[in-house]
């Protein structure tokens, strides 16, 4: 386990695994898109617009998945103080924000023909908007604190505060607006959605998750390199200082 957590080993392992993961993500997403447009039927109520669901729902799932990844990494930062956990946290925040943004925009584009407006203050949309704001706050925190170790701990604390708060926000927003349709994929007593629509959705969700894993691993690699660059440039600057010392003293 410790071996996998060593950053140098992690760089080598991901370099070997990433091409395969990209291949898998590409194949799954290709199959999913084919099923979305060729296999899945148009909804009898919503017509063709139901095809937006095949990206909207996976994006919503990833917006929560990214937060889960950040939470686990935040625990890694606070409990084990592991540099890889710091890198994973920092890499996940912009990706989470990106997929949450996709979820919001596709939801809006789906809502316009269905509800007649670009935005309704519906409970689920509003909760996702608050989640988006939390992501933006985390990114702002990462960008403001320069020292990476401090930034990682501050972001970890804020992420964990968010974990406690997100269910409360969800509950309060639901309470605030009880007029919305019940969630239909993960309903008690099995999915209510027809299999011809469920399969494309599951394939798209798997493909999107693979895409997220690829992007996340690549971003973690970048963060490892950035921390290495930071340390090496300090060392180089120190070495340069030592090299300059004798002439300065001789001149004085």
């Amino acid at each position: 386990m410790l071996k996998y957590a060593n950053p140098t080993y992690f760089l080598r392992l991901t370099a070997a695994v990433l091409p395969w993961l990209w291949g898998a993500a590409g194949l799954t997403l290709g199959l999913g898109l084919y099923m979305t447009f060729a296999v899945a039927p148009a909804d009898y109520q919503q017509g063709e617009t139901v095809r937006i669901m095949y990206i909207h729902v996976p994006a919503a799932w990833l917006s929560m998945f990214a937060y889960t990844v950040m939470t686990l990494s935040a625990l890694g930062t606070l409990v084990w103080r592991h540099p890889l956990a710091d890198a994973s946290q920092q890499a996940a925040a912009p990706l989470g924000a990106g997929f949450t943004f996709i979820c919001l925009v596709t939801g809006s584009l789906w809502g316009k023909p269905m509800w007649g407006t670009w935005w309704v203050w519906d409970a689920r949309l509003t909760s996702v908007l608050v989640l988006f704001l939390i992501y933006l706050g985390l990114i702002a925190l990462w960008n403001t604190i320069e020292e990476p170790l401090k930034a990682a701990r501050a972001a970890a604390i804020l992420t964990l505060v968010g974990v406690v708060n997100i269910p409360i926000i969800k509950f309060s927003v639901d309470w605030w607006n009880t007029l919305h349709q019940p969630a239909s994929v993960l309903r008690m007593g099995g999915p209510a959605i027809h299999p011809t629509m469920l399969w494309p959705l599951l394939v798209m969700a798997l493909g999107a998750s693979l895409l997220f894993v690829c992007l996340h691993l690549m971003a973690i690699r970048n963060e490892i390199l950035r921390r290495r660059l930071r340390r090496l440039s300090y060392l180089a600057a120190e070495a340069a200082d030592h090299g300059l010392e004798p002439p300065v003293e001789a001149g004085a």
């Binding site: 063709e48 617009t49 937006i52 990106g98 943004f101 996709i102 584009l109 789906w110």
Partner: peptide, 20 residues
């Protein structure tokens, strides 16, 4: 509604491309 469907997929493609 083809315009909305196209726009949704296009926005998704653009955001993923920007992240990548």
């Amino acid at each position: 509604h083809a315009g909305y469907i196209f726009a949704a997929f296009a926005v998704t493609a653009v955001v993923v491309a920007v992240m990548l």
